[in-house]
Simulated scan of single mutants.
Amino acid sequence: MTAAHHATLKPWVKHFPPSSSPGEPGAATVLFPHAGGAATALRPLATALSTQGADTFVMQYPQRADRLADPAPETLEALADELFAAADWRRAGALRLFGHCMGALVAFEFARRAESQGIPVPEVWVSAGQAPWTVAGSPPAPLADHEVLADMVDLDGTDPRLLADPDFVELLLMAVRADYSAFNNYSCDRNVRIGADVHALGGSDDHRISEDMLRGWEFHTDGAFTCTLFDGGHFYINDHIDTVAELIGRG
C-alpha cells in the first residue's frame, strides 16, 4: 500500500498493515462489521489477517465510536456509497471483502460499486447474513428500545455486563437503530449478481441464519459459490478467528 493511498483514507477507516512478509502485491482485505458493531468488533480478525502479509482495513459505520456525530445513512446502499468514497480503492489493487451479519449486505453493495469502477474483487466472504434478495420479504428489524435490547440478547453477541451499563446501552441503541433503519429500507432483486466468488460462512447452531439462508447467496454471483459451517451460533466467528482468517487468506 502506497503512502499516496494512505493519504486518501478517511481517519475512521482502521488500517492493519502487514505484520509479516507481504503476499501478493497490492492485495487488500476490507472488513464490514455487524449491525450495531464498531470496528473494534473485527479487530481480532483484522489482526489475524494482517499476519498473512496483506493490508487489512476495517470500516467504521456512523453513529458510534469516533463517528458518533456522523449522520446515519438512510439505506444500506447509501452506507456503501459512503464507505466506498472513504478511499481511492483503485490504488489498493484487488480487494477481498468480508462482512458479518448486516455487514455481509454492505460488503455485497461495496463489491457492486467496486466492480462498476473496474476495481477487481475476486472474493466476497459473507458471514452469518441473509442473502440480499431475501431482505425485502423478511420481517423488519426492531426499532423500539426494548425490542432492540431483546434482539441483542437473543443474538448473544454482547457481554451481559455491558448491557447492565446505562451509558453503554444508550450508545448501543443509537448505533443499532441507525443500522436497523438502513436495513429495513434495503431491497435487492434476486437477479442482481456480482462477478466475485461468494463464500458463505455461518454457525451450525445459529437460530437466526440457517444453512438454507446462507445458500441463498448463490443467486448473487456469476463466480464460484461455497458454504461452510462452523460450530457455534450467530457469533461463531469469535471462536474461529484463525481458521476464518486462513480461509480468507487462502482464497
Results as ranks from 00 to 15, higher is better:
G37S: 14
S116Q: 15
F32P: 02
S19A: 11
F235L: 11
V244G: 02
H15S: 14
P11Q: 08
M174Q: 14
T228A: 10
G195W: 01
P132F: 01
A28D: 02
F16W: 12
A131W: 01
E218H: 14
A39M: 05
A39K: 00
A28G: 01
A7T: 12
T243L: 11
E211A: 08
L247E: 09
P122A: 07
Q60G: 02
A7N: 09
D81W: 06
D151N: 14
L45R: 02
F32G: 00
A86D: 07
R193F: 04
R43A: 14
H207V: 10
D81R: 05
L155E: 11
R193K: 15
P142Y: 09
G249W: 06
I209H: 04
V244R: 04
T228G: 08
A182L: 04
A131D: 05
E211L: 06
H15E: 11
G37P: 01
F230A: 08
P25D: 10
G137A: 07
F168I: 07
D167Q: 11
W133V: 06
S50P: 01
N184V: 01
E115H: 07
Q52N: 08
Q52Y: 07
E170K: 11
E211S: 06
R43N: 12
S210Y: 03
A164C: 07
R43V: 06
T75M: 12
S204T: 13
G137M: 03
T228D: 14
P142A: 10
V106D: 01
W125D: 07
L9V: 04
A141M: 15
F108K: 00
W125K: 02
R250P: 02
W89G: 00
H34D: 10
A72M: 10
G99W: 05
A69S: 14
D145Y: 13
S116Y: 09
F98H: 04
D167C: 07
M152C: 14
T134D: 10
A4M: 09
L97V: 01
P17N: 13
D206N: 11
P11K: 07
V126R: 05
A72E: 05
A46E: 13
D156G: 11
D189F: 05
P22T: 10
L214M: 05
M174A: 12
L79Q: 08
R64L: 03
Y186D: 04
E123S: 12
L247C: 06
D88K: 10
F219R: 08
V13D: 13
A94K: 05
P132H: 08
P17M: 13
A78D: 15
V244T: 07
A38W: 13
E218L: 10
R215E: 09
P33R: 11
A196D: 05
L97Q: 02
H220E: 01
A85K: 05
S20D: 13
R96S: 11
L247T: 10
D189W: 09
Y61R: 05
D156M: 13
R177K: 14
G232M: 04
G203W: 00
G202P: 02
T243C: 11
V198G: 02
R250Y: 10
E211V: 04
A38D: 15
